[in-house]
Write a protein that binds this DNA or RNA. Structure first.
Length: 575
RNA sequence: GCCCCCGUGGCCUAACGGAUAAGGCAGCGGCCUUCUAAGCCGUUGAUUGCAGGUUCGAGUCCUGCCGGGGGCACCA
């Protein structure tokens, strides 16, 4: 049991049970970090009414029992009934040595493992990823990595927009300019020109517009030649997406695409099922479901538009099919939609429909991991059509350029320089979005996203690089470091205790789908290491101290490295 | 009009109902002949939008108000 909070929780529960009866073994011991000790247990305050005693009278005997535990150096009642707990140095040292020896750094697998879907990134065929895609992409990927680390069976799902009326124009435009030119533009990510050219012709050329409309019909009908051209657009776009995901260190692959077209064959059946069950009715010519609890203007219920009056399908249809498929075919018990806040009502309606239809049955859950809306510098919304759209690729280039400027004079080898600039720039960019609560709205601000000092990706990478540097200087391999660990100074003790919180941080992320909790932990861990680094010489220390400090360094490195990798942040060997 | 989200030092943010609200940036003052100064140490700066309420205890929960954002029928 390496996690101090879990260990203390068990001790307090045991003390409560021993003191007041077995029924108190399940009480929430309310262990919290404390400014006055390592932790505080607040259970006595909330138990006061139930036990009919003053909090201090409850806390006293519990503290006495805690003081008898080897892990506890001191437990004392404070204030209205807080129990301030200081852990024994020897206990922390033992746990740290165990953590270092454990391939999983003391983080147990989740029990039981679940099968889950994480829906994120939201790419589109023939549209480039823009700055607004950054957050849902990096946050979703971090969530996936954390869940997989805990042993869950995670199905990545990027809801690829590859279907719909625009594809008529796009296919006709591809025919006009030829397949080679189409490939050249799309695979390189030059979507805007391609899209706008198609749009311009559609608006100005009646013949082209007519061809486009007919092409849509052919696409819906699955006409072979049309399908071949459509597939061409998809394949070319995928080449672009593969490249940008690879550069961003995102784990999505072709197999993880959950394209709208994939659900197309299921839409009729979904509509039939819902209509048969009386959950969908014809309204104004369209097949609609009206999940309860959603009213719009004029107090009318808000529909999910399952089939439009013209017989076509929209995203309500696809999402209904997707949630049914995931719950009933894939058999997942948790679905996490990492999607913008503006889709909140839509998703709540889809969830409600899924409950009504009996697809979403407890203990299975569906949740919306809200991504805050990104706005432009003026605070206005960045609309898809507007020219002020910032390309994600440009943002990445800028990030790497800024990093390169900072390190320009530090490395003579240009290859090494560009590799480090890449890791630092991309790391800074990603960490900027991973370090804040994902649901906070924010203004697109290059300086914020690309900062290189303070609580940033590079700070964490730098801490890791400095640790590697110590081992490099000593000619040692961090993998060979081992206990015992001696906690002689407060910096060493603080660092060791902090590192033991890794499992707690990871569990928090898994429970809440909020990666910024892991980011906060890593920053605290890196800060604790840096304080240690300033105060505790490693290589010049005497034998036992030196060995212990090397062990602490190795442990710090592995915790930082693990945390950064779970966030999807590259960790360069040196900086 | 109805529904949802958000208001925390000059700026950006954190805080699982717990004590004196925690960091980063910017500002000010220090620290490189000693393991990488992308760093460290110190310091200035907040009655957490306003008013009530619940609670032993509220930035956190409830109600109202003010301010900002989003959503509300065939776009996704």
């Amino acid at each position: 049991m390496g996690d101090p909070e879990a260990a203390l929780a068990a001790l307090v529960r045991q003390a409560l049970a021993d003191e007041f009866g077995a029924e108190f073994a399940a009480t929430d011991p309310s262990i919290r970090p404390s400014a006055f000790a390592d932790f505080q247990a607040n259970a006595a305050l909330s138990l006061s009414k139930r036990l009919g005693r003053s909090p201090r009278d409850i806390a006293g005997p519990v503290a006495d029992r805690l003081n008898a535990a080897p892990a506890v150096a001191k437990a004392e009642v404070s204030g209205p009934g807080f129990i301030n707990i200081t852990l024994a140095d020897e206990w922390i040292a033992e746990q740290s040595a165990e953590q270092l020896a454990d391939p999983r750094l003391g983080v147990p697998f989740a029990q039981p493992a679940q099968r889950m879907v994480v829906d994120y990134s939201g790419p589109n065929v023939a549209k480039e990823l823009h700055a607004g895609h950054l957050r849902p992409t990096v946050v979703g990927d971090a969530i996936v990595r954390v869940l997989e680390f805990l042993g869950h069976d995670v199905i990545r799902a990027a809801h690829l927009g590859d279907w719909g009326t625009p594809f008529g124009q796009l296919i006709e435009h591809a025919i006009d300019i030829g397949e080679q030119a189409t490939y050249d533009q799309l695979a390189s990510g030059e979507f805007t020109a391609f899209y706008q050219a198609a749009r311009a012709k559609f608006d100005s050329d009646p013949v082209f517009a007519d061809r486009s409309r007919k092409r849509v019909v052919q696409l819906q009908a699955g006409e072979p030649d049309t399908m071949r051209l459509w597939q061409l657009l998809v394949d070319d776009s995928m080449e672009y997406l593969r490249r940008i995901y690879a550069r961003l260190n995102i784990t999505l692959t072709d197999a993880d695409m959950a394209p709208e077209s994939f659900y197309n064959p299921m839409l009729d059946d979904v509509c039939d099922e819902l209509e048969r069950r009386g959950l969908a009715v014809i309204s104004d010519g369209a097949l609609c479901a009206f999940p309860p609890g959603f009213t719009g203007r004029d107090g009318k219920p808000v529909p999910l538009m399952l089939r439009k009056s013209d017989g076509g399908y929209g995203y309500d249809s696809t999402d209904a099919a997707a949630i049914r498929y995931r719950l009933t075919e894939l058999g997942v018990t948790r679905i996490i939609y990492v999607v913008g806040s503006e889709q909140s009502q839509h998703l709540q309606m889809i969830f409600e429909l899924a409950r009504q239809a009996g697809w979403l049955v407890p203990p299975a859950t569906a949740e919306h991991a809200v991504i805050g809306l990104m706005t432009g510098p003026g605070g206005q919304r960045l609309r898809t059509r507007s020219g002020e759209q910032v390309k994600l690729a440009d943002l990445m280039d800028e990030a790497v350029d800024r990093a390169a400027t900072v390190i320009a004079d530090r490395y003579s080898d240009p290859v090494q320089r560009s590799q480090i600039a890449e890791a630092v720039g991309i790391g800074a960019l990603k960490y900027g979005d991973l370090s804040v609560a994902r649901d906070s709205g924010y203004v697109l601000d290059f300086d914020r996203l690309l900062a290189l000092t303070g609580n940033t990706g590079p700070y964490l990478q730098y801490a890791a690089a400095r640790i590697r540097s110590i081992f490099a200087r000593a000619g040692l391999d961090p993998a060979d470091a081992a206990g015992p660990i001696i906690l002689a100074t407060s910096a060493e003790r603080t660092l060791a205790l902090r590192l033991l919180g890794l499992g707690r941080a990871i569990d928090d992320v898994a429970a809440t789908a909020e990666p910024h909790k892991l980011a906060g932990f890593i920053f605290d861990a890196a800060s604790a290491f840096t304080a240690f680094y300033e105060q505790c010489p490693v290589l010049t220390a005497e034998s036992e101290t030196r060995q212990s400090r090397l062990a602490l360094c190795a442990l710090s490195l592995r915790v930082l490295d693990t945390g950064l990798r779970l966030l999807g942040i590259p960790v360069p060997d040196r900086m």
